[in-house]
Write a protein that binds this DNA or RNA. Structure first.
Lengths: 175, 175
DNA sequence: CTATTGTGTTTGCAATTGCAAGCACCGTCG
DNA sequence: CGACGGTGCTTGCAATTGCAAACACAATAG
């Protein structure tokens, strides 16, 4: 049961800390948090904010994302695409262009998932140990065999049309 | 109260929301947060916890990591930040989609070069690896007023021009 | 035996998150 | 004109975060 919950994040931190052979106080100092608070975090008595988590990750010199995944703040099944990270890291394009690219790419991924849900061969070298319940991302028409379904371009007109940000058609569902 | 980078995350969320043409209340409902709180987050008056951030990302159906990066909670220092290389290496998209992405990216680069020919660095290979990205507070693009030059993808429009609404996103002035 | 230093933990408390309720504004419909 | 539904914003308030101070225990030094 690798279900990431708040309790396990504490164990994870403590484990990492013990492995690194640092004392609680020391890690607290390095991370810039108070020792009692770190203690409570490790014991699962407190739910640290992302900022604190980030600090702790720095103090432990581990990946912030690993910690977030452990905390359940990042869905591990979320494909950590190199394309997306590359786009985000690119500083040669404007923020809007970046978002457009991200939108398009994610829309592509989504279309592909909708058309071939069986081929679940994600890129993830990093396994996704979290058995997540099914998600409602069926928005596009799966019948469409067109190589490039409509709507992939709508993301290119961020001021005129809603991009295929995810929901091409907005449905009002109060939950 | 000093709100470090929270402002940018708020703007980012609001931009994503307006682009997706969702109302604040609707996103709040989808994300499972209260509408006033979301309002405050978007205006940078509150610093949302990672949990809330994650919920919002889900509600917007965008990557949680994108939000975390925007919030400065994840160091976006991914090793290879070459967009084109990443796109070419990606096997989760079709060949056609790949070509579209490459076209769009290159057209973006072209537009930027046309507007700011002063800056020119890498084209397809990584030129200068930045191990430590500066924690910049303001990352406003120079071409802020002109969002995206039209015609940057005229060759990529196999369908039609979507109907324009006439009224663009309205900015809210604080104060 | 009494300090001192080390570990992690518990205890109040200021500051903050996050929300329910309500306000102000705009457009439409009777 | 007034009622209704839509948008976002402001206001108190419970619940929580995160910390400074102090605690309990263990090992070493004087």
């Amino acid at each position: 049961m690798a279900l990431p919950k708040v309790g396990s994040i504490g164990e994870y931190i403590r484990e990492q800390r013990t492995v690194a052979k640092i004392s609680l106080r020391q890690l607290a100092a390095t991370a810039g948090v108070s020792n009692p608070y770190l203690s409570q975090i490790e014991r699962g008595l407190r739910k640290p904010s992302a900022e604190i988590l980030n600090q702790i990750a720095k103090g432990l010199q581990i990946s912030s994302q690993a910690l977030y995944v452990q905390a359940g703040l990042i869905e591990a099944r979320e494909p950590d695409s190199d394309v997306l990270t590359a786009i985000r890291a690119d500083h040669l394009i404007t923020e809007r262009q970046r978002q457009v690219l991200i939108d398009i790419y994610e829309s592509f991924r989504k279309e592909n998932r909708a058309e071939a849900p069986d081929e679940d061969a994600q890129t993830s070298q990093k396994a996704h140990p979290a058995p997540e319940p099914p998600r409602d991302d069926a928005d596009s028409s799966p019948d469409d065999e067109a190589p490039l379904p409509k709507g992939y371009l709508s993301a290119l007109k961020p001021y005129e049309t809603p991009p295929s940000n995810g929901h091409v058609t907005q449905e009002t569902k109060e939950g």
